[in-house]
Design a protein around this nucleic acid. Structure first.
Lengths: 244, 244
DNA sequence: AATTGTGAAACGCTTCACAGCC
DNA sequence: GGCTGTGAAGCGTTTCACAATT
């Protein structure tokens, strides 16, 4: 009788597979609500990364075929994905790398800074704190929380580790937008609820489990063991298992 | 002109979205090759986790509705997924938790030990080395490699950090099945190639980038920044960006 | 009476193919 | 001539609904 449960995927209001709601966004006509699949959003991120690679190589003008080829996808897929948000190329010419990068950043919400709270200062928390990929995309870790009072003396790059009890205060003080949860599964539900009550509506969670997501909140789950299980399945070939 | 490129997904021989090839597996008739979607495999992992939760609570007999409800999916989806591999329930009765757990473990290849090589002893490598979720699923880290010669004095839980140059020797010595890559993106391609040449055919890679996957190899990419970008997209609502 | 397993229908995503534009 | 943007076709996945089974 779980009131609102959620799988290893994520959610906002949700329908079944993994769909993010999107407001007008204005491509075809005017005000018209659509839904963008998680797959499409993931691909937009990959297009952005690939364009940055090309730009670093000095390639300014690119066709959908070139971009798609490098990524191992198809040009039609790329053009269809972009067409969900507008029309960013020139017929006969292709795309301007710099311009498309700017557009994608805007679409993905990467044209601003995101103020991030790290909850959990264990090994995973420490690795994420130092992960350069976050800062490169505008995600700034502004505060660190941990349950263990023994950690309160520590400073990470000058940043104090504050007690979990201070969550609400810290969220307010630092105007936190998003939280990263690197804590044991047992602690996740309570932290999610407190974050939601404090107005934080985006959470990246690394502890596997089934949680109830408050309405309006987006939770993205990363289950590291599950990612390895995909490989054990692939290497096993589906495993015998069979039917009697 | 990349010969064989790959997106942020994974691959074995692959078709477009994300499909794992599966040998006979024997449900419907007999020898007949099918393909299981990555989504279905992910859900099987989630069913397994949920059944273990139920079993820990003392619930032995479960209906598809109960399992699906806890996970936030539908009973039809669960039954369809299971039917890809056989028929594991009793009509009118539901599923026996213990038996279905065993079947799922077999299907996912979790009924054995996997000998894992950790490449990269930086912060992420260190977090993964200590991650308890891997051991709980039978993934045993048997060796650690790093480029930095200064690390060679260290012992992690008694395990030496060996030089990257010893990769081939270590793979042979420890009969490595799978590798986890926690190294800079620049180093990934060469390590993938050397692993493939040494007979390691499953890789979990944490460095974002576009790589060429040798035939027969499965690579699963986890891009931590991309997981946060999904949240920035969700919170932005697709972002203005708009069309001129 | 309850619940599975599964064809068939519905749905959504990907690919095709070409009109429209540069 | 070359390449984008997009309706329509194709295809895979999810949902429905019911016959089969305990």
């Amino acid at each position: 009788m779980t009131p609102r449960a959620v799988p290893g995927i994520f959610v906002k209001f949700f329908t079944s597979p993994a769909v993010l709601p999107v407001l007008p966004a204005l491509p075809p006509s005017v005000s018209e609500s659509r839904r963008i699949s998680q797959g499409a959003v993931r691909r937009l991120s990959l297009y952005l990364r690939t364009l940055e690679e090309f730009l670093a190589e000095g390639r300014q003008n690119l066709s959908s075929v070139e971009i798609a080829e490098r990524l191992g996808t198809t040009a039609a897929q790329l053009r269809k994905d972009l067409s969900l948000f507008g029309s960013f190329g020139k017929r006969g010419m292709g795309y301007d790398a710099e311009e498309l990068i700017g557009r994608l950043r805007g679409i993905l919400g990467l044209d601003r800074e995101w103020r991030v709270l790290l909850v959990g200062a264990g090994r995973i928390g420490s690795a994420l704190f130092a992960y350069p990929g976050f800062a490169a995309r505008g995600f700034r870790i502004r505060a660190i929380l941990d349950v263990d009072p023994g950690r309160m003396e520590e400073r990470w790059q000058g940043m104090p580790i504050e007690p979990l009890g201070a969550l609400e205060e810290v969220v307010r003080r630092e105007s936190i937008d998003l939280a990263i949860l690197a804590i044991p599964a047992e602690a996740v539900q309570s932290v999610i609820d407190r974050l939601a009550a404090s107005g934080v509506s985006g959470v990246l969670n690394f502890a596997p489990g089934t949680f109830t997501i408050p309405p309006g909140m987006s939770v993205n789950e990363v289950d590291l063991a599950l990612e390895l299980e995909l490989l054990s399945f692939a290497r096993t070939g589906g495993g015998e298992g069979g039917i009697p």
